[in-house]
Design a binder for these strands. Structure first.
Lengths: 209, 209
DNA sequence: CCGACCATAGGGGGAAACCCCTGTAATCGG
DNA sequence: CCGATTACAGGGGTTTCCCCCTATGGTCGG
């Protein structure tokens, strides 16, 4: 099984390589230090599996996944999340990833994930499964509703410290419309002011802190 | 030279151990998966050096550093920053760390940093040095002034989405005083509203996103 | 073709936030 | 012991936010 490793930290690549090459049937055929390199190598080398860190320079793991699945759909992708957050889980699945492993559990789960991918099955850590279930349940009951693209855009601009007027100008809208989008977003998310929106936007990765 | 490794990701610990044990005079005497464990092991095992990731459960690398330097000042500390940001550099130095290495450059710089610490010298990556110089220059001209404890406290509460009135009640102050602290903080930081304060508070690690 | 969602826009009003100013008491480094 | 800094408090004003309401045109799935 030919595997590509992509992570911007040499230490992590070493650790991964060490772990993987203990397996007789796994061969690390390429290493990439950023997302663009990962995509290029994946397309050129056609490994069976690409293991991508979410956070990389040039292209994030998610962006790289989208491009890989477009240009080389036969390459499976496993997303490795550095941070202990699962905020990219949904995005990763949408992008076409076969699995999502938190790095904290990488040693124990990663091999299981690779074996699952080998069999053509998806793999989610128990943690990730719990997230998905929670999301499904909440979406039906009282959880956070999904924002429309416009609402998300406005929230992002709010979180970047733009005033209503500035956002209106940026988007060529009336202030009232911007107010409405912001208010609707806040209502959906159960938030009461822009401050909470900022933290939401950062958690969701809409903006950098 | 006895070294302690602390990182919540097994993969990273493996990579570090691999790197370090290539050196004949370095011995990894302990591994910790969170900040509290790192502190306890550092105090108990008294390694020559503790290599701590900034972002860990229970105690962050910075908090762990503070406690280690208090309870075992003879243990040197190297901070390893996972992210490619240097935002914790100043906090790390204040906490008593001897060096600050970005994980992206860990392979090349880490050993140099360890050797520097061995000689009792501080170690900063060229990147970190650049940051420090920039900070010194800016502090003289137009850089961010330092907040007073009270201002920082108010900023933190603002960023946690408390209104002025709520903060006043929490701190047993008049709303006017809270307004003044907030306004002074904003003036010092060159910010114009609460939204920017939130991002500042998150960058500074005053609150979680 | 008809609800449903969405994006757009507005009116009106109350509550915060933000801004500029003054002033006092306490503390602390030089 | 004195100037600087900090913490505290207020007056008075403008701007922005936030909330309630209505309303229209477009699009899309059933």
């Amino acid at each position: 099984m030919k595997v590509l490793i992509a992570d911007d930290h040499g230490i992590v690549r070493s650790g991964l390589r060490l772990l993987l090459e203990r397996q007789p049937d796994i061969e690390v055929v390429a290493e990439a230090a950023d997302g663009a390199e990962a995509r290029d190598l994946a397309v050129r080398e056609r490994p069976d599996l690409a293991i991508l860190d979410v956070k990389m320079p040039k292209l994030t793991g998610l962006q790289a996944t989208r491009e890989i699945k477009k240009q080389a759909p036969d390459v499976s992708v496993l997303i490795l999340s550095m941070h202990d957050d699962e905020r990219y889980l949904f995005e990763a699945l949408k992008a076409g990833a076969s699995g999502y492993v938190l790095k904290a559990q990488a040693d124990t789960d990663l091999l299981a994930a690779i074996r699952a991918v080998e069999r053509g099955e998806p793999f989610l850590t128990p943690e990730a499964q719990r997230m998905l279930i929670k999301d499904v349940l909440e979406r039906g009951s009282s959880g956070e509703e999904e924002l429309t693209p416009r609402e998300e855009e406005v929230v992002k601009l709010v979180a970047e410290a733009n005033t209503t007027r500035e956002i209106a100008e940026l988007l060529h809208l009336s202030e009232k419309t911007v107010e409405n989008h912001r208010a609707n977003a806040m209502r959906k998310l159960g938030m009461r002011d822009r401050v909470e929106l900022v933290r939401y936007a950062i958690r969701r990765g809409l903006i950098e802190p």
